[in-house]
Simulated scan of single mutants.
Amino acid sequence: MGRNGFAVLPLTTGRWGDLADLFGPQGPCYGCWCNHFRMPQRLRKPLLGEGARRLFEERVRQGPPPGVLAYADDKAVGWLQVGPRADIPEWNNPRRASTPLADAPAEDISNWAASCFFVRRGFRGQGVTGALIEGAIDFARESGARLIEAAAMDNREKRSADGLYVGPESVLRRAGFVEVARQKPGRPLLRLVL
């Protein structure tokens, strides 16, 4: 078993069924299926639900893995979308908390983003997010990333578990991420240089 008792593995085609089980029939975040930062809302919104699921499944099939899964025994209990900023163009929008800085442009595929977190109900507050982050750091290093950034929720902001899909600041800081900018109130841009 891996960190905090959870194994963390890249999402490959062979693990698609584990992600589908974790996300449930509708998918998290109102049927987004982790397409929120992959395309503009006008294109994404009509796909919510089954269309978004099919689109993300095709993305996984094409590879490379778009993130990591955390497992408790052989059941997926957490997901973190992590990969090059270039793969999630909406995350790079100039009006977002995650807008890239001049020293880490989105076009450089060695600049990665940890953009979407999801933890299964019943496993929240048990260290899954920390395990996902540590597993994502290993995955990013092995894949040639230079750095990982996250536009987390500020520790002072009170949010529901669903609202933490961008990641909790405190857990990212414990993993070594440091604030490099604050482009929106309550949303620090955190970075870990690998």
Rank of each mutant, 00 (worst) to 15 (best):
G127K: 07
I148M: 08
T12D: 15
Y30Q: 14
A131N: 10
L11Y: 09
F139H: 09
D138F: 03
E90T: 03
N93H: 14
E107W: 04
E50K: 12
L189W: 04
G144E: 09
P65E: 00
F6I: 11
G83W: 01
I88S: 07
T12L: 11
G17N: 13
V68L: 00
A136V: 04
C116M: 01
R44F: 05
R15H: 08
L189H: 09
R159A: 00
E142F: 02
R3S: 12
F123A: 05
L69S: 04
E149K: 10
Y165A: 08
R121K: 09
A151E: 12
G51S: 06
P66L: 02
P84L: 00
A136L: 02
A161W: 13
Q62S: 12
N111Q: 12
G122M: 01
A152P: 12
G27T: 03
G17M: 03
A72I: 00
G31L: 02
Q26S: 15
A76V: 04
L189D: 04
P66Y: 02
D108H: 02
A140W: 02
L22C: 08
E169P: 13
R173I: 03
L55N: 13
P188R: 06
N4D: 11
L189P: 08
R54V: 09
P40I: 01
L19A: 15
N92F: 08
P64K: 02
L132S: 07
D21N: 09
L43Q: 15
D18R: 11
Q26H: 15
P64N: 03
L47S: 11
R191K: 10
A150T: 12
A86K: 08
T13L: 04
P89N: 01
F123K: 02
R173T: 06
R38V: 06
L11G: 13
M39L: 04
S143K: 07
A161T: 10
M1E: 11
V8R: 09
E157W: 03
N111F: 01
N35E: 05
G130V: 02
A152H: 07
R59M: 01
F117V: 13
D108M: 00
W79Y: 09
N92Q: 14
V8H: 10
R15N: 07
P89Y: 00
D74C: 08
G125I: 02
L194M: 11
Q183N: 05
D154Y: 06
A52G: 12
A52V: 03
P89C: 00
F118M: 08
P65C: 01
A106L: 03
V171S: 14
R96F: 07
Q81F: 01
R156Y: 05
P185C: 03
Q41Y: 13
R146M: 02
L190G: 07
R15Q: 06
V178W: 05
E57D: 13
D21Y: 00
Y30A: 15
N155I: 13
A145L: 06
R96E: 09
L147D: 12
P10K: 02
G144D: 11
D74W: 03
R141N: 06
E58I: 04
A161G: 08
R54S: 15
F23C: 14
E149V: 15
R121Q: 08
M1G: 14
V128W: 07
R15E: 06
A150V: 15
R146E: 08
